[in-house]
Computed example of a mutant assay.
Amino acid sequence: MILCVRFLLDARGEALLPDLLGLLGELTPVVEAAPPDTALADVRGALRYFGRDAEQLAALVRVRALALHGVDCVIGAGPNPMLARMAAREAEPGVTRVVPGSADGIREFLDRKPVVALEGVGRSMARTLCTYGLDSVDRVAAAPLGTLQRILGAKAGREVYDKARGVDRGTVVRNAAARSIAAERPFSRDELDPSRHRRALLSLTEELGVRMRGSGQVCRSLALTVRYADRTGHTTLTRSRTLREPTAHSASLTEVAYAMYEALGLQRARVRAFALRAEGLGPAEQAARQLTFDPADDKARRLEAAADKARARFGERVVVPGALAA
């Protein structure tokens, strides 16, 4: 049985996640972090060791998280990671959503759900399936494999065929590397000044770039979250953008962050906080880079490498962009 735990984090955010993962580590060594707020735990051994069922173990995690860190959580449990994640999306604080491991229990959980509820089925694929009358999971599950493969292609058809029947070949990967990192810049008050908005975004991209380069990683996309004031209180908007190529180059990250900010049209908004997430992390040595003949780009990257060495030796604040030095 797999637990999917989503912690309802406050302003302390991702900084608390390692401590919360430690709570799960007391139950099972097979824990996979899914930042910023989620973790998967394979508790099959813990069920036997503690003599409790999945719902009781989930209650134990919830009580410890509240008692030790003041953090509530929503928990889903299922026989595989996909079903556990789907169950967690339906769970509420204080109530664990459990998907039984039997074939009948899985079928009952999946039946009548819209096909887009399946992992890996986006809006485009869902529209394609709906044109053939396959608009719910139970209808997709009843369709022959060959039909789905003719509609979606051999690989995608097989994946949807399996998932509609509750089959997930994924596993919980112990101590898996984080697939994303994030940083946040709150303002002490609702901030109107666009120059301060851009300054906050610059500091975010600098921080994420330094962190990724320090760990030998690059990201494939950025997600920008803006919390701003409106007539209803505070509203949160999130936008993401895929990079032209995987990178940890701060200037490239800044360019994309500024572009997302401009596209939101919030230059006169009263912003309370920005958060930026680097997603799709992977090893830098495996990333392809488009060669350029721009001497300015080469110079910027050499300066960036020199600045990273200085930070490693003398501290993070020894080198900062001029716009952040004031």
Rank of each mutant, 00 (worst) to 15 (best):
K113R: 11
D308P: 03
R272T: 00
D190T: 08
R48L: 00
V318Y: 04
T38H: 14
F314V: 02
L27G: 01
A178K: 15
R313E: 06
Q149T: 02
T128W: 14
V318M: 10
A164Q: 11
V95E: 12
D162A: 09
C4D: 03
A223V: 09
I106P: 02
V63W: 15
R150S: 02
L24R: 05
R270M: 05
K113Y: 03
V173A: 04
R317V: 04
E55K: 10
G45Q: 05
R196V: 07
R174I: 00
L237F: 02
A126K: 09
S180R: 15
R272A: 02
V218R: 11
R97P: 04
A67R: 14
G170I: 01
Y132L: 07
R169S: 12
K299V: 00
L152G: 07
A284N: 08
R289C: 03
P321F: 10
E262S: 08
D42L: 10
A117K: 14
L152A: 08
A84F: 04
R198K: 08
A257L: 02
E184Q: 15
E92T: 02
D42H: 07
M86R: 13
D37L: 07
R270K: 05
R241A: 11
I106L: 09
R241P: 10
D190P: 05
L23Q: 09
A11P: 09
E108T: 12
I106C: 06
L129F: 06
R185N: 00
A273H: 06
T254K: 15
E55M: 01
G282C: 14
G120M: 08
L27A: 00
R85L: 07
L222R: 05
A275G: 11
V116F: 05
P321H: 13
P18S: 00
L20F: 05
A182P: 07
R48E: 02
R302S: 06
T28W: 09
G105P: 04
F314A: 08
G105K: 11
R52M: 08
